[in-house]
């Protein structure tokens, strides 16, 4: 049996990302989750020694200011595939400025690019959707579907915004996840889980142990290395559970900034140097509000 002495349960599920967090410096800059921000995440596969497979950039444009009824999320994601082919994805979501960042309208484009960066035309997928007259209208090319979802609704990337503004109370919110922009998954919940202090950053006391796995056969585990010169950082954990998704835990700092997320074998780690943030205007901007409303269609 592997050694059970290390407090894996204290870290869970951040332990799966731990080897990628060596030397991680938590951001010191101020952060306003209601403002304009742009977070850049390294996407890791958490298999054996974690490795980076892609990059996710997600930005909030609070066009109408912090109190506006809606805001825009701009998303770019790139996943690296064998042969240096890449799946590139761009999306823009208009969301209600409510706790779940309820989707009001969106457009989405994905494509494969070869090693020279050329788009493979037959892999271009474009979709759009909007909420109108009590139901979602989903459009792909000239085809249109409608979808009526009872109760609250959220999208995965909207939750990246939502957790940054989420109250630190354990009461869960129930909702239907509209996954991949058109696949409804009812019975989901999002809740604040706890707040704990973690020792982030620093260096491995014994770098040669990095990536080591202990145990034999089907009983192996990653070694959680002891680190020195770490930075104590309080993290708030939020858990997202429901059908069709692996338990996802988001970690925000005291300012609300989403630093890490772990979802099964996928880990996301905020790159502070690439990310930016600015405080939102305290009052609304009527013109910007009008722009957003045009994009979003009818108010939900």
């Amino acid at each position: 049996m592997p050694d059970q002495s290390f407090t894996v349960d204290h870290l869970f599920p951040l332990n799966a990302l731990w080897d990628a967090m060596g030397g991680y410096q938590p951001p010191a800059a101020s952060f306003d989750p209601w403002g304009n921000w742009r977070n850049v995440y390294r996407i890791y596969q958490l298999i054996g020694l974690s490795f980076q497979q892609g990059l996710l950039t997600i930005g909030r444009v609070a066009k109408g200011g912090a109190r506006a009824g809606r805001f825009v999320l701009q998303v770019t994601q790139e996943k690296v595939c064998p042969g240096n082919h890449r799946q590139h994805l761009d999306a823009e979501l208009t969301c209600a400025n409510d706790p779940l960042a309820t989707p009001l309208a969106w457009r989405f484009r994905s494509e494969m690019r070869d090693r020279e960066g050329r788009t493979l035309a037959e892999t271009v997928l474009e979709k759009a959707g909007r909420f109108r007259d009590g139901q979602f209208e989903l459009t792909a090319g000239e085809r249109r579907r409608t979808l009526r979802l009872p109760g609250a609704c959220a999208m995965s990337w909207g939750l990246f915004d939502a957790v940054q503004r989420w109250p630190h109370r354990p009461e869960p919110a129930a909702f239907t996840l509209l996954d991949e922009f058109d696949q409804p998954k009812p019975g989901h919940s999002l809740a604040w889980r706890d707040a704990k202090e973690y020792e982030l950053g620093g260096e491995d006391v014994d770098p040669s142990r990095r990536g080591v796995r202990e145990g034999r056969g089907r009983q192996v585990r990653k070694v959680i290395n002891e680190r020195k010169n770490t930075i104590p950082t309080r993290l708030h954990a939020f858990q997202h559970l429901g059908p069709g998704t692996l338990p996802m835990v988001y970690y925000t700092d005291d300012a609300g900034r989403l630093l890490f997320a772990v979802n099964g074998l996928v880990g996301l780690l905020l790159d502070p140097a690439a990310s930016t943030a600015e405080t939102a205007m305290a009052t609304g901007d009527a013109a910007a509000n009008s722009d957003a409303a045009t994009t979003a269609g009818t108010e939900r």
Binding site: Q45, K79, Q87, A121, E122, L246
Partner: peptide, 27 residues
């Protein structure tokens, strides 16, 4: 090949479905 796939399913199966869906819609 539409794509080669990559890594594990929780991150990459959407590449498979996105590209197959794109092929069907663009065909």
């Amino acid at each position: 090949m539409l794509n080669s796939g990559a890594g594990q399913g929780d991150l990459n199966d959407t590449i498979v479905s996105d590209d197959c869906e794109a092929y069907l819609r663009n065909r």
